[in-house]
C-alpha cells in the first residue's frame, strides 16, 4: 500500500480515535468508520499540514449535496488517497 494511504490511515486513526487495523483502502470514512463532519475537518487539517495542500472539502461537499458526484468518490479511503496524491502532484507541477 502507498505511503499516502499509511499516512492518511494514521491520521484518521489518531484524529477520530479509530483502531488503525479497521481502516482499509475500501473503508468509507463516513459509513464504515463513522467519521462525522467535525472529525473530518480535523482530519482535513492534519492532511493539509502533512502534505502541504488544501483539501477542497467545501467543493466536495457541494458536489455530493447537489448529486453531481457520489460521496464514495471522495470519502472512500483509496479515493481520498488518490485525490491527495493528485493535489500533491499538482502542487509540484
Amino acid at each position: 500500500m502507498s505511503s499516502t494511504f499509511e499516512t492518511v490511515a494514521g491520521i484518521m486513526s489518531e484524529t477520530a480515535d479509530i483502531p488503525r487495523e479497521t481502516i482499509t483502502p475500501e473503508s468509507h470514512a463516513i459509513e464504515d468508520l463513522g467519521i462525522d463532519s467535525l472529525a473530518f475537518l480535523d482530519i482535513a487539517f492534519a492532511v493539509d499540514k502533512a502534505f502541504g495542500i488544501k483539501l477542497p472539502l467545501e467543493q466536495w461537499t457541494q458536489d455530493v449535496n447537489e448529486g453531481k458526484v457520489p460521496a464514495e468518490e471522495y470519502f472512500v479511503v483509496k479515493n481520498l488517497v488518490s485525490r491527495i496524491d493528485a493535489l500533491v502532484a499538482a502542487k509540484g507541477a
Binding site: 475537518l41 482535513a44 487539517f45 493539509d48 499540514k49 488544501k54 477542497p56 472539502l57 467545501e58 461537499t61
Partner: peptide, 9 residues
C-alpha cells in the same frame, strides 16, 4: 496559521 476549505487555524 492555516486557511483550509471551510475552516481556519
Amino acid at each position: 496559521t492555516h486557511e483550509g476549505s471551510g475552516y481556519v487555524a
